[in-house]
Design a protein around this nucleic acid. Structure first.
Length: 273
DNA sequence: CACGAGACCTGTTCGC
DNA sequence: TGCGAACAGGTCTCGT
């Protein structure tokens, strides 16, 4: 489900709270109920439960598409993959279908990890590098410059679409925002990375940031049955708009498959070569 | 090294 | 209406 803007939105809501929902920071974890064992990456279910108990949530953040909970002693990490979600409920509420983990928190509230497709994972670790160490740069980080992107693009020879989906190359982009950013940068998804000029690398980085910032401002995109209040889906330029007119030139948006992922682009604005 | 296919899963939508 | 196929915001592993 979520990419960087959606995960950022979830992290902010959990950290700060929302109307009718209290913030989680500074709350103690009283217990853990694991309903689907394979959702837990590490450690063992028994160690997970005992180690979590009595730790306080000191901060909640995001790295790439991971949600990061800094606890008194450990780090609790979530990756929501395709269908995962984190929701706050009254402690007394009955579990929902597809709940995989429920944490009981101080103040009679619960944090539920709900994940229909069971692809999502949870980690409890004492240092984050074992999980987050292979992630590439944060696209919104100031230290990630056009020069850096240009050098990385030229260190390999790969198609832009799968390269930008590679979390070791750049962290946080997924199928929606890669298609949107490539359209804004007027680059064909199959362009080979080391053929870009420095100017094109600069446009690509600027486009990635524009798309991500716009999406974050709109609280991310809500597709299908998952609704979190985000409305960026109403501003998609190409994603899931096959056959509809390009917002720039009116040419029908094309759809191809690249690396087994649906890929949407404008044949006129993003010509091949 | 770069790419494609298959695996992991369940739910919804599409086409006949 | 029913039923199977295709598809879905992700990532890992394996074979070529």
């Amino acid at each position: 489900m979520p990419e960087l803007p959606e995960v950022e939105t979830i992290a902010r809501i959990l950290r700060q709270g929302a109307p009718g929902q209290p913030p989680l920071v500074d709350r103690c974890i009283l217990g853990a109920r694991l309903l689907w064992e394979r959702s837990l990456a590490t450690p063992s279910p028994a160690e997970f439960a005992t180690r979590l108990e009595h730790q306080v949530i000191e901060d909640i953040g995001r790295r790439g598409k991971f949600l990061t909970f800094r606890l008194s002693r450990d780090w609790l990490l979530f990756h929501l993959r395709m269908s995962g979600d984190l929701v706050v409920r009254p402690l007394a509420a009955t579990p929902e279908p597809h709940d995989r983990l429920i944490l009981a928190l101080e103040g009679d509230i619960a944090l539920a990890f709900n994940d229909a497709r069971k692809f999502g994972r949870v980690w409890l670790v004492d240092e984050v590098d074992s999980v987050l160490g292979s992630l590439g740069p944060e696209p919104l980080d100031d230290s990630f410059t056009a020069d850096v992107l240009f050098a990385h693009l030229h260190a390999t020879r790969r198609q832009l679409k799968p390269l930008l989906l590679d979390q070791a190359f750049i962290a946080g982009l997924g199928n929606i925002y890669v298609d949107e950013a490539l359209n804004l940068a007027r680059l064909h998804p199959l362009t080979i990375s080391n053929t870009l000029t420095l100017a094109q690398a600069g446009e690509l980085l600027a486009s990635i940031r524009t798309v991500l910032r716009d999406a974050i401002r709109r609280n991310g995109a809500s597709i299908d049955w998952v609704y979190r209040g985000g409305d960026f889906q109403n501003y998609f330029r190409v994603y899931q708009r096959t056959g509809l007119p390009c917002p720039e030139c009116g040419t029908p948006i094309a759809r191809i498959t690249v690396g087994q992922r649906g890929t949407h682009y404008c044949p006129h604005c993003q010509p091949w070569e």
